[in-house]
């Protein structure tokens, strides 16, 4: 396979960008952050049956300073919205956001005065996972989609939000 054939074992050529993105997507640390019903399904995804450790994601971080991924799991009330925004800003770059479930994506069944109609009004969202609440398999599908997205990111260009 090209140049690598003539080199010793264990030497491969790649671009820095690919290598960095590979490392980033292989161990995304999610923020241990639950809001409502979807948080229950999110915890189920982390726990015994679905075991998110298979995707290098078992380390949920309690502090936003150590987290890469915010999974907005549930309805965001107007009182909670500034908190979510602040937590997002406290996360270091690069960072990603998954809007888990109908409420985080669009407000869901709660089209009323109390609920922010989609968390993308306050933080930029990378992946929307539909469902009320989404099954753990659906969340895993969203995470795999996010991994694919991370693989294609550019190191130099700032991410378009």
């Amino acid at each position: 396979m090209g140049l690598e054939e003539h080199l010793g074992d264990g030497i491969l050529f790649t671009t820095l960008e690919k290598a960095v993105n590979w490392a980033r997507k292989s161990s995304v640390w999610p923020f241990g952050f639950g809001l409502a019903c979807c948080a229950i399904e999110m915890i189920c995804t982390f726990a015994s049956r679905f075991d998110l450790a298979r995707f290098g994601m078992e380390v949920t971080r309690a502090s936003p300073r150590q987290a890469d991924l915010m999974i907005v799991s549930g309805r965001v009330s107007t009182k909670m919205a500034p908190v979510v925004r602040q937590l997002y800003e406290q996360m270091p770059e690069p960072k990603w956001v998954i809007a888990m479930g109908a409420c985080a994506s669009t407000g869901g069944v709660f089209n009323n005065y109390a609920i922010v109609q989609g968390v993308d009004k306050i933080v930029p969202v990378d992946i929307y996972v539909p469902g009320c609440p989404p099954r753990p398999e659906q969340l895993i599908e969203g995470i795999i989609k996010l991994h694919k997205k991370i693989e294609k990111e550019s190191l130099k260009k700032k991410r378009e939000l």
Binding site: A36, S77, F110, N112, Y113, A114
Partner: peptide, 11 residues
């Protein structure tokens, strides 16, 4: 309290 106030009764 009230960070998860959802307005369910109103809905």
């Amino acid at each position: 309290i009230g960070f998860l106030h959802t307005g369910i009764e109103k809905t």
